[in-house]
């Protein structure tokens, strides 16, 4: 843990806010009055995944916290928890789905993923910006009566259904944009 001035908070840092760890997703300097300087930050809770806005005085002290990442293998979904395994120690770890969000539907079994740890507890996973997934089922579609960009629904190997261009076939590998969970290109 390191104490920093709120004025040096940057996007991507983890800080303690009301005794809980938060990821900083946006920062903005403000100088509303006479001489006061404030630092407005957008925070995403790493425990509840809720978001909040707060403006600190630029000169007040804030605790920056260490969030470590641990490479683990994704095993399976168990109810509302994702089960991971440390490939070296074979120790298993469960991460609540809420901390990962919809993106958990992109996880392929046996995939290596970084799990974020704070205070020895998992607080989320770090996914790449893009992921490659195979198409499990794509029905042939005729684009006869569509206007503009024709799309059809395809099912990926994880069971997730997304919209993809008509030329996509069963067995193709697709590159998926993780943030929007949408088709980018054929891989």
């Amino acid at each position: 843990m390191a104490t920093i001035k709120a004025g040096s908070i940057r996007k991507g840092m983890y800080i303690l806010f009301k005794n809980a760890p938060y990821l900083v997703t946006k920062t903005d300097f403000l100088s509303p009055g006479k001489g006061s300087a404030l630092m407005r930050v957008k925070l995403k809770s790493v425990i509840s995944s809720g978001t909040t806005d707060f403006s600190f005085k630029s000169n007040e002290s804030v605790e920056e916290v260490e969030v470590s990442s641990l490479q683990m293998q994704y095993l399976y979904l168990d109810g509302d928890e994702l089960v991971f395994m440390n490939s070296d120690t074979f120790e298993q770890l469960s991460v609540p789905i809420d901390l990962v969000g919809e993106q958990h539907k992109l996880l392929i079994e046996e995939q290596q993923i970084y799990v974020l740890m704070y205070d020895e507890k998992p607080i989320g996973v770090r996914l790449p910006d893009k992921m490659k997934l195979k198409v499990a089922l794509a029905e042939d579609a005729d684009g006869g009566n569509t206007v503009g960009q024709a799309r059809k629904t395809v099912e990926l190997e994880t069971g997730l259904k997304i919209l993809a261009p008509l030329f996509v076939k069963t067995g193709d590998t697709l590159i998926i944009d993780v943030a929007t969970m949408s088709y980018l290109s054929r891989g």
Binding site: P32, G35, S36, D53, K57, E60
Partner: peptide
């Protein structure tokens, strides 16, 4: 209320901080 108040913190800074956090929106 949970705001950091140190010996050098001025009334005006706290006033602005509360205005920005709780009122302006």
């Amino acid at each position: 209320k949970g705001y950091a108040v140190e010996s050098e913190t001025s009334f005006q800074e706290l006033f602005d901080q509360i205005l920005v956090n709780e009122i302006e929106s």
